[in-house]
């Protein structure tokens, strides 16, 4: 009997905020969240309480787009200043600051064994760092800097596989590259062009991109999330969309769509029970999909546009962060 049951999804607590939260990391076995904010700072708070006190930590001077824990004490954050900041959350001290990218950092990922940190930014490079020492291990270059219509591209997402040996990165035009972490080789690439809308007729600009990435437990499949084709690129008026590929064969296995909005994060259950997609348009959306049966388990709403999500250890509780709100939800069986 699985511990989590998405059909039972229900709200536990909403915590209102004035800022926009782009990223969340959760301290193991606790309700303590580290969040990256539009007020340029990293905050720590206890989501187990109503109106929790807020502890202000690092300041990037710019939007903080990603926060990740290395072990339980060290937090790494990245933002629109192109820097990565390592800091000791217990002492509240900066350990080191690294000018990691020449453009805006979009996402960080920590390898499952906690030894490596990956960062992606709009300089279209993925860099792998020693998560402890901050030493740069290697650079992964392969995403085109310009879109086919000659505008600057963006590199939004990165994720490690469960065994830590593969890394996937996804860009604005829907390209996903699978890298061999050990030596930086490209192992494969898949394209999800539906997730990128270039409107060359009505509005002459684009919207979309690969926002969420998740490997399946054995690392043979990659799920890619974003928003489907949009008629009016003024807003996120397309179906939220997830495509799943066998990346070695560059073959799309299946896809599913949901309510209007964009999928910002994907989480694949370690026992393959579900694939969770979370994001939003004007409101928040969440989808749980059964990858084995290729059928929807549950699609529902979250009271705000969600940018990131963290789960607890047995995946019975989720902590969604986004537009002026944190939403804690239960999905116990």
């Amino acid at each position: 009997m699985p511990a989590s049951s998405p059909r039972n999804l229900r709200s536990v607590r909403d915590i209102n905020r004035r800022d926009i939260l782009f990223s969340v990391a959760r301290l193991p076995n606790s309700d303590t969240l580290i969040v990256g904010s539009s007020d340029n700072k990293v905050h720590e708070l206890n989501a187990g309480q109503n109106n929790p006190p807020d502890r202000e930590l690092a300041d990037h001077g710019r939007y903080v787009t990603s926060v990740r824990l290395v072990g339980t004490r060290t937090v790494v954050s990245g933002g629109y200043d192109g820097r990565l900041i390592w800091w000791d959350r217990e002492r509240g001290e900066v350990i080191r600051t690294v000018a990691a990218h020449t453009r805006w950092v979009r996402q960080l990922a920590v390898s499952p064994d906690g030894t490596k940190l990956a960062s992606v930014a709009d300089d279209m490079v993925c860099r792998i760092w020693n998560a402890t020492t901050g030493e740069r291990i290697r650079e992964l270059r392969g995403h085109a800097a310009r879109t086919p219509t000659n505008f600057g591209s963006m590199l939004y997402a990165c994720v490690f596989s469960a065994d830590g040996r593969k890394l996937a990165t996804g860009d604005r035009v829907g390209r996903v590259i699978i890298w061999n972490v050990e030596d930086g080789r490209q192992l494969g690439a898949v394209d999800a062009p539906t997730l990128y809308t270039w409107d060359g007729v009505q509005r002459i600009r684009s919207i979309g991109g690969v926002r969420g990435l998740a490997f399946n437990p054995d690392g043979t499949q990659i799920a890619v999330g974003g928003v489907g084709q949009i008629g009016n690129v003024d807003a996120l008026q397309g179906p939220s969309r997830v495509e799943v590929f066998n990346w070695a064969r560059a073959e799309r296995l299946f896809f599913f769509t949901g309510q209007q909005g964009i999928v910002n994060r994907l989480v694949w259950h370690p026992a393959n029970e579900w694939l969770c997609a979370i994001g939003g348009g004007s409101n928040g959306l969440v989808m749980f999909h059964d990858p084995a049966r290729r059928a929807s388990i549950h699609q529902g709403n979250i009271p705000m546009h969600v940018h990131d999500v963290a789960f607890n250890e047995d995946h019975t509780r989720l902590y969604a962060v986004g537009h002026q709100k944190i939403s804690v939800m239960d999905l116990r069986a």
Binding site: F151, G152, R203, I204, I207, G209, L236, G281
Partner: peptide, 21 residues
């Protein structure tokens, strides 16, 4: 006429695309 800047969604990425041009 350079259209269409009406960025009700993803304003920053829209401008990241169009302002450099």
């Amino acid at each position: 006429g350079r259209a269409w800047w009406d960025s009700h969604g993803h304003n920053f990425e829209t401008h990241q695309e169009m302002v450099p041009e």
